[in-house]
């Protein structure tokens, strides 16, 4: 019972702050609300037996990604709420597009009935041992390949930030 309340609470927080991410005027508030959303999601992960992912989620998203965002916002001094007035037409169009997407998704997935779901839930699926075995067993190749991804991202970021020598 309590988990249900928790679920609804976290859901409310997540959606509410997600909306605020979009509609906050000030980028830093957007960022902070995004962090709140991330925490709500991390809470959901906990509810879903994915403790490891919850921790990693906080570390990666809240701890690294959003810090970088805020860092950039601070560095660029974007606190001025300078977003120019966009024409109402575009705003309406964007809202309609997003709304329609949401509606389609919700309507389409509303009555999803998954067959062949096991009622018995195995709590160990989110444990780090199990994940480690899957990651370094089945997913060895992607794991190794992602090294290339990081290397290229690193080289790219450094290259873009490097001062050009003339």
């Amino acid at each position: 019972m309590i988990t249900q309340y928790l679920f609804y609470f976290l859901t409310f927080v997540a959606i509410f702050s997600a909306l605020l991410v979009v509609f906050s005027k000030n980028p830093i508030y957007s960022a902070l609300y995004l962090i709140v959303t991330f925490f709500a999601t991390a809470g959901h992960y906990f509810l879903l037996n994915a403790q490891f992912l919850a921790a990693v989620h906080v570390i990666v998203y809240a701890g690294a990604i959003m810090v970088l965002f805020i860092y950039v916002i601070m560095m660029l001094n974007l606190n001025k709420e300078v977003e120019p007035h966009k024409s109402t037409m575009l705003k309406v169009a964007a809202t309609v597009c997003g709304g329609v997407l949401g509606l389609v998704l919700v309507a389409g997935l509303r009555e999803t009935e998954l067959t062949a779901l096991s009622e018995y839930s195995n709590p160990s699926i989110g444990l780090i041992e199990r994940l480690g075995n899957v990651l370094f067993g089945t997913y060895m190749v992607p794991f190794e390949i992602s090294a290339v991804l990081f290397l290229s991202a690193m080289v790219g970021a450094v290259f873009l930030s490097k001062k050009t020598i003339h």
Binding site: F69, L78, E83, L101, G102, L105, V106
Partner: peptide, 20 residues
């Protein structure tokens, strides 16, 4: 929940003009 979050994200992409 995920659909709504996803749609909100997509809405934001379309709605906002600030690249960040």
């Amino acid at each position: 929940l995920c659909s709504i979050l996803f749609a909100i994200g997509a809405l934001g992409v379309l709605y906002r003009r600030n690249a960040l």
